[in-house]
């Protein structure tokens, strides 16, 4: 009796595991297939938006050639890269400074400031865009990459939550020990906190760097009508307009592959830090 129960339990276990393996395999396929299609389509020789068969009849590299020679893709790619590098530097500095100040320093305006940021975060981001547009127009920065960088970095203070959560978990005795040794608060920040904050710094850099690649709302509004200043998201969206789709769909796929490769590589390389950041931030808010 006892052995039979034991065996059936083991059988149950095996059955559940098999089911889980099946689900996970199916899921992986569902999750990856759009990207496989994307890659296959980027090598398709036939024109047109969609084909009624899975594998193209004619394999070619022409889409990539067309992408780099006949379109402005390279300009857009350069724009986006430039914007995201600059924004990453500025935003990371601002986020780290804000988080340290709000987590470690105690001053009168701390709570009001945090509440203010919370309330500002509740306004839909696009609401302010009209006014921002006219402010930028007054200083001559519309349809200008510097303007876009300003828009992205200016409100980066509002993304302090995850980083502050990380600083909150670091023991306060670290600061106190350094303070007793005569360090001032700046020294504590640069010599004690920052060296220990590597995971969250990498997480911040990673999220800051990838954000401009996918941002559409602000960049499309700011760069309206000047294709030389588009970012990849804005430029590639144009290719999917009904009038251009049949000619440019395969080019779009090629562009998507080119855009995705470096970011994916970066992500898989730094996966550990990303996971740490996401996990830590979620618990602490």
């Amino acid at each position: 009796m006892a052995t039979k129960k034991y065996r059936s339990k083991k059988g149950m276990e095996r059955l559940t595991n098999t089911i889980i393996y099946i689900i996970l395999t199916v899921m992986s396929v569902v999750w990856l297939i759009p990207f496989v299609i994307l890659i296959i389509q980027s090598f398709r020789g036939e024109l047109g938006g969609a084909t009624p068969y899975f594998f193209p009849k004619e394999w070619t590299l022409n889409n990539y050639v067309k992408l780099f020679t006949k379109t402005k893709f390279l300009t857009w790619y350069g724009n986006t890269l430039l914007v995201s590098v600059v924004v990453t530097v500025v935003q990371t500095l601002i986020v780290l400074a804000t988080s340290y100040a709000l987590s470690r320093l105690r001053f009168k305006m701390r709570k009001p400031l945090m509440n203010l940021v919370l309330i500002l975060g509740m306004f839909p981001g696009f609401l302010s865009m009209t006014a921002v547009y006219f402010i930028l127009k007054e200083i001559g920065l519309t349809q200008n990459l510097v303007g876009l960088m300003l828009v992205y970095s200016a409100s980066s203070m509002m993304q302090y939550y995850i980083c502050k959560g990380f600083f909150d978990t670091m023991p306060k005795s670290l600061d106190e020990a350094a303070r007793i040794d005569g360090a001032n608060r700046r020294t504590v920040f640069f010599k004690v906190i920052l060296p220990l904050a590597k995971p969250i710094i990498i997480y911040t850099i990673l999220t800051c760097f990838t954000a401009p690649w996918g941002e559409y709302m602000f960049s499309s509004f700011l760069m309206l009508g000047d294709p030389d200043k588009f970012t990849v998201a804005v430029g590639m969206k144009e290719w999917l307009l009904p009038t251009m789709r049949s000619e440019y769909f395969t080019v779009f796929c090629a562009a998507a592959v080119i855009v995705s490769i470096p970011i994916t590589a970066l992500f898989i390389w730094l996966q550990r830090y990303y996971v740490e950041g996401v996990t830590g931030g979620a618990v602490k808010g």
């Binding site: 340290y100 100040a101 320093l105 400031l113 500002l120 609401l127 009209t130 921002v132 402010i135 700046r186």
Partner: peptide, 24 residues
């Protein structure tokens, strides 16, 4: 030190978030 750290972030926030929201 909080003033040193926060002055630039708050300035950016004021010009590009608070002012526009009030305007709208």
């Amino acid at each position: 030190y909080h003033k040193t750290l926060l002055s630039i972030p708050v300035l950016g926030l004021t010009i590009f978030t608070i002012l526009p929201i009030i305007f709208m």
